[in-house]
Design a protein around this nucleic acid. Structure first.
Lengths: 340, 340
DNA sequence: ACGCATCGTCGATACGCATCGATAATTCCC
DNA sequence: GGGAATTATCGATGCGTATCGACGATGCGT
């Protein structure tokens, strides 16, 4: 492997000059730059990351703490991960995976060993042993999701409240007077995960304003539970039933259950599922969706942390950013003209 | 951040002694070791990764090249990623994400910059511009999946041929005389992706030996295509129909289609899907499955690369390892006693 | 009691880059 | 046209660890 010294020698300059050509931190004459760049090209020189980190006190790596909870919708997690990795590259950074299994000590480890310059935590919920650690670490940390106490933390998430509101408004406009929300898994709901509550707040707020009735029913992947929920919803609905399934894992079961009850979405019943455009493509039917913008949330998370890094992470920060959600009609919701 | 020099000072020894205590590469007296360990503990010392990489010429990081093809089953990719990351930790290594978008130059980059000591490539298919690069890199590379020409490469994958064989044998034993395979997406099949062909070889081999008829029908997530395939299968089947859906993405659609035809899996029809135990848990119904062992494949991939690293990666290697698959009866297949 | 091997520790050096101060080359202004 | 202000480059140093050679201490056999 060639070093910057080799490049310097080939170009007939000092090693430091090579460094300045690369970083641009000091003026370099056109002539010298050309020589150095030619030498770099010719030797296929690439700077050594370890040496760069050691001398420059910056690794250009961001740690990404990923969850692996079977209850979650893995497909959407991959979407986060993938967009985060690609966006990081645009900011000339790489992504180091830190699994949830390592817990709080894992965060201390990667930061303490200076393997990475900052952290992104995914799927942060109400309480978490990692939160106090995140606050105390001397590097920027960005949370995707909002904990119960976001003080002293930098958070970003989809605007779940807006999402809930949009769904109910939309269904109300289509003429539904009763809207059933198939919740997340009971374990998730009981934990009072922040985004669940925010979504509920949105649905209830819109329902109150529009005089629509909202039912919250147990969700998850258990077919019997979903079946119960559907039957309860049908029994309590006057007019055309409407369902919202904000949890990706529940959608398939819901679809199947409705089919077994002889109901066709978009015809006898409205269904809004949660999916990004990418994932909506993969649905077996053109599902009307509320898009929680995972890609946009991911991009912004990376942007935030990279800006903090550039700014030198001066002192503790605190911020909260909500990304607007988008509702998209496809074939599973009644159109307003069919309404009432 | 404390350095090993600080530790040395606190313990009253030389910095090199601290290093030897940590690496164990030279004998250290019990007394000295205790002192040093106490100092490490007290200062919460953690070795600097950059310096370690620079001096030791080993980063303890493995690059993981992940695919993000919408046609693939994201959930199972996450299972690979997660297990790989955790297993790597057991070998005292970390995982750096490299997205497919970076292509072959991405591989050259992370290796050239010495960000990582080796690479794991996921979802390798027939031909790939990264393969020649992988062969030429001077670091160990392990492929998950088998390219058309595996020469000069270290590969590991599930034994898809065994999987196909097991499925057909199993269904034959349950009394089915015609077995329909719902293929992967047409784009995948047409690419002659290695594992597809291997799976087919397995089904056809078993079919030939047992005198069973095997139908290969188009799959994917398009409901109409699946519906066609199912109808074709039903038309050509004498006796109880049987389906194999080795592609995770097709399973939901298949289930739904069968339901719409009034067929109940495990009763009027047998269905074998592909899922690891973890993912099988998440299925809406207790699906009989062929387990392609993603966790085991992942573990072995990490094991292989770590052993190559320890051995100093002497010269080019070539190997091919197949992980046995496991078939599990749950409620969607007929039992042998109900057969014929 | 003396030479010898072994054990445990130290000091020095290299790893490859970033950065600072200094110097040489050039330009500018009065 | 001489000194000041710039501009372009160089040399030296430090980042924190791993590793090598050396050296004092200890135990051995004779």
């Amino acid at each position: 492997m060639p070093t910057s010294k080799d490049v310097a020698q080939a170009a007939g300059v000092a090693q430091s000059t090579v460094s300045y050509v690369l970083s641009g931190k000091r003026p370099i004459s056109e002539k010298t730059r050309k020589k150095v760049e030619a030498a770099i090209e010719q030797l296929t020189y690439q700077p050594n990351a370890g040496a760069r980190a050691l001398a420059g006190r910056r690794t250009h790596v961001i740690g990404l703490v990923i969850p692996f909870i079977p209850e979650l919708h893995m497909a959407s997690i991959m979407e986060f991960v993938s967009v985060i990795a690609n966006t990081a590259r645009q900011y000339d950074h790489d992504i180091l995976l830190v699994t949830e299994d390592e817990g709080a000590p894992g965060l201390r480890r990667v930061v303490g060993q200076q393997i990475c310059d900052g952290l992104i935590l995914m799927q942060v919920e109400g309480e978490d042993e990692r939160l106090p650690v995140a606050r105390s670490l001397n590097v920027p940390v960005v949370l995707i999701g909002i904990p119960r106490d976001p003080s002293g933390l930098v958070c970003i998430d989809a605007d779940f409240e807006m999402a809930g509101e949009q769904c109910v408004r939309d269904l109300a406009a289509a003429g539904h007077s009763v809207v059933s929300v198939i919740d997340w898994q009971p374990e998730v709901v009981n934990r009072h995960v922040n985004y669940v509550d925010r979504f509920m707040r949105g649905t209830d707020k819109a329902a109150h304003e529009l005089g629509v009735k909202v039912l919250h029913l147990p969700g998850g992947t258990d077919r019997d539970i979903i079946a119960d929920s559907v039957d309860k919803a049908l029994a309590e609905t006057t007019g055309t039933p409407a369902f919202i399934a904000p949890d990706g894992t529940a959608q398939d079961v819901l679809r199947r259950t409705l089919a077994s009850r002889g109901l066709t979405p978009g015809q006898d019943v409205s269904v809004i599922g949660s999916a990004s455009p990418t994932l909506a493509e993969l649905q077996p039917i053109p599902l009307s969706t509320i898009d929680l913008r995972p890609a946009e949330v991911s991009r912004r998370a990376v942007k935030i942390i990279c800006e903090l890094l550039e700014a030198g992470n001066q002192g503790p920060h605190e911020s909260l950013e909500l990304v607007p959600t988008v509702i998209t009609h496809r074939s599973t919701t009644l159109r307003p003209s069919h309404g009432a």
